[in-house]
Measured scan of single mutants.
Amino acid sequence: MKHYEVEILDAKTREKLCFLDKVEPHATIAEIKNLFTKTHPQWYPARQSLRLDPKGKSLKDEDVLQKLPVGTTATLYFRDLGAQISWVTVFLTEYAGPLFIYLLFYFRVPFIYGHKYDFTSSRHTVVHLACICHSFHYIKRLLETLFVHRFSHGTMPLRNIFKNCTYYWGFAAWMAYYINHPLYTPPTYGAQQVKLALAIFVICQLGNFSIHMALRDLRPAGSKTRKIPYPTKNPFTWLFLLVSCPNYTYEVGSWIGFAIMTQCLPVALFSLVGFTQMTIWAKGKHRSYLKEFRDYPPLRMPIIPFLL
């Protein structure tokens, strides 16, 4: 059985960083990364991007050496992705923050609204209902991160945790300040508006959870398998008939419901920014589905049925 020789060059300087002799033909890129780490321990596998061309796409960890368009002496180019952190850690951090930050404003801890309001309670029912909904949303997200989601990528750049936390924590503080303010004004149409908004919120939260469970069942634990998601017997998953990412559709719907319930401008802005970002993600995933699966359902749109 022939063996391969693998040289790894710096993608920027073309400097030879490592030479691997007698590499098995069936070795994966993940195994080559581990061998590279032995000579350069500062670059652990998650930091490494190996590619066939200095400006090309990163090879997948599961790619097999003998199936790549290389000879028995293969040249790979290395790029440092920077310090990495696990997706689970990032999600837990960015979701735990809003949960606790919101509660600080809800309980009106000292130095927020003035001494005479310390630890007082709002007289408006919608304020307490909003706290329950907000807390439920982020507790749900935390539990899904721990027990439901299966991540195709193990890590992301460390800098992302600061960007994500600034976004989630900042908006949580902004909306919580106004919703729990002693001078907060309840919704214009009173109980009817709150009940309608609560119904929207609850339905969308159930829908979002149902989609996450359906997506989880598509991917076996520990794998990166991708399949076309289809509706199940659960009615909340029937939205798969019309959109590629109904989890985002339901998520946006939840925040629209919360915005109607609280009639709070920061919540509306958070919903708008979230919708914009999720639309970008949904379009990317939709394109990926179309590219990977020739039999992908043609009627589906990325996030909004028939429109977007």
Rank of each mutant, 00 (worst) to 15 (best):
H149D: 03
K16P: 06
V202E: 08
Y168C: 02
S49I: 01
I256F: 12
G154I: 01
K116C: 15
M261T: 05
F306Y: 09
T93G: 13
C245S: 08
D118H: 03
A83V: 12
P231G: 01
L52Q: 06
H3T: 01
Y230E: 07
K291S: 11
P298L: 07
T89K: 03
L52W: 10
E292G: 08
S49V: 03
Y177N: 04
E292I: 13
K283T: 05
K60N: 09
M261E: 04
D61N: 13
R287P: 05
F107P: 02
E15Y: 01
K224Q: 05
G170A: 05
F151L: 10
I256M: 10
H26N: 01
G222M: 15
E292V: 11
P45C: 00
L307R: 08
E15D: 11
Y230D: 08
T93R: 02
Y4R: 01
Y95C: 09
T145H: 04
K22E: 09
A191F: 12
G253C: 02
G207C: 02
S288G: 11
E24V: 04
T73P: 02
G114P: 15
G170R: 04
Y113E: 00
K2L: 07
P246L: 03
T237K: 07
A172K: 02
L81I: 14
F147P: 15
I200N: 05
C204R: 02
S223N: 15
V90I: 08
K163N: 05
H40Y: 08
T93D: 02
V194I: 15
I179P: 04
H212P: 04
Q192D: 05
C245I: 15
P25F: 13
P54A: 10
H212W: 08
T125I: 10
P25S: 08
Y4M: 00
D63Q: 00
D80R: 15
L99Y: 06
I256L: 09
K16G: 09
Y296E: 02
P54K: 10
T155D: 15
I85M: 02
W87G: 07
W43F: 00
P45Y: 02
L269I: 14
K57V: 13
T279F: 03
Y184S: 05
T120I: 13
T166P: 07
Y77W: 15
I8D: 04
Y113F: 10
T237E: 13
T39K: 12
Q277S: 14
Q205P: 01
Y289F: 10
P305S: 03
T28S: 08
G284D: 11
L104K: 09
R108G: 07
A191P: 11
P25R: 02
P305V: 02
Y113C: 10
K33G: 02
F306I: 11
K283Q: 11
S223G: 08
H128L: 05
C245V: 15
T120G: 07
Y95R: 03
L158V: 06
A30W: 13
Y138W: 10
W255L: 07
C165S: 09
F107I: 00
T28V: 10
L17A: 02
K224T: 05
P302K: 12
P235N: 00
E292F: 07
I211L: 03
S288M: 00
T145I: 13
A172D: 09
L103A: 08
T120V: 01
I303K: 02
K55S: 04
T72L: 00
P110F: 14
W43A: 13
I179T: 09
I8V: 11
V88D: 01
T89R: 11
D61L: 09
L20A: 03
K233N: 06
L146Q: 01
H137R: 01
N234T: 11
K140Q: 13
A27F: 13
F105P: 05
R159G: 12
P246I: 15
P231E: 15
L99Q: 11
I260K: 11
G257I: 00
F78S: 12
R141I: 08
I32S: 06
M301Q: 03
G71L: 10
L35R: 08
I179G: 01
G170Y: 00
L198I: 03
A268E: 02
W169H: 11
E94L: 02
F19D: 11
P110A: 08
P297L: 02
R150N: 02
A176G: 11
Y44M: 12
A191T: 09
H286P: 08
C133Y: 05
K2E: 11
L20I: 11
P297R: 03
S254Y: 03
S49K: 03
R150F: 05
E292P: 01
R219P: 02
I8R: 04
G253L: 12
T93E: 02
Q66R: 12
N34T: 00
Y44L: 07
F162L: 11
G82E: 10
L242A: 02
S152D: 02
Q193P: 07
P110S: 09
C204T: 07
I303M: 10
T73R: 03
Q48R: 12
F111P: 12
Y184H: 09
G71D: 10
F306C: 07
K60E: 09
F306W: 14
L129P: 05
A173P: 12
I256N: 10
P298H: 00
L92Q: 13
K67E: 12
D118N: 10
D21Q: 02
Y230A: 15
A30P: 11
V267R: 04
L218W: 15
A27Y: 13
P220N: 15
P110G: 15
H134T: 14
A46G: 13
L241P: 11
L307M: 09
L272K: 02
S223K: 06
G274S: 09
K291F: 12
G154A: 05
P45G: 08
C245H: 15
T249S: 09
M175W: 02
G207R: 02
R300H: 02
V126G: 04
F78H: 04
A30L: 09
W255S: 04
K57T: 10
W174L: 06
H40S: 03
F270C: 08
L68T: 00
C165F: 11
F19N: 11
K224E: 11
P25H: 03
Y296C: 04
R47L: 09
T73K: 03
R216Q: 09
P231L: 08
K291M: 08
K291C: 08
T120P: 12
T120C: 08
Q66G: 10
E62A: 09
F270I: 11
G207E: 05
H128P: 04
L59Q: 05
G207S: 04
V148A: 06
Q66T: 04
Y184C: 06
F78Y: 08
A96G: 06
S86N: 08
G222F: 13
W43L: 10
P45S: 12
A191C: 15
V127F: 07
Y230V: 12
S122C: 04
F91T: 02
V267F: 04
S49F: 06
Y44R: 04
N164D: 06
K140N: 02
K12H: 12
R47Y: 04
L206F: 13
R51Q: 06
I303E: 02
S135N: 02
S135R: 02
R300L: 07
I32L: 13
E62L: 15
L241F: 15
L99S: 07
Y177V: 04
H40F: 07
G154P: 06
I303G: 00
L9Q: 06
K12F: 02
I29F: 06
N164T: 01
P298V: 04
S210R: 03
T262A: 10
Q84K: 05
R14I: 03
R123I: 14
A199C: 15
S288Y: 14
D118P: 04
H115Y: 10
A30R: 09
W87D: 03
E144C: 01
R150E: 00
T237A: 06
S271A: 12
Y177I: 11
F275W: 06
H40G: 02
S244C: 12
F19E: 06
D61C: 09
L103P: 07
A46R: 13
I256A: 00
H137L: 08
T145N: 00
Q66L: 04
L92G: 08
G207Y: 04
R79Y: 00
I132M: 06
G190R: 08
Q66W: 03
G170M: 04
L92T: 12
W281F: 13
T166G: 09
D53A: 14
K291P: 04
Y113S: 06
H181L: 05
K57Q: 13
L68E: 15
H212A: 02
Y296Q: 00
D21A: 13
Y102E: 06
Q193A: 07
S121T: 06
S223T: 00
R216W: 07
F91R: 07
M213I: 09
V273N: 02
I139R: 15
F36R: 01
H286L: 08
K67L: 13
A176H: 01
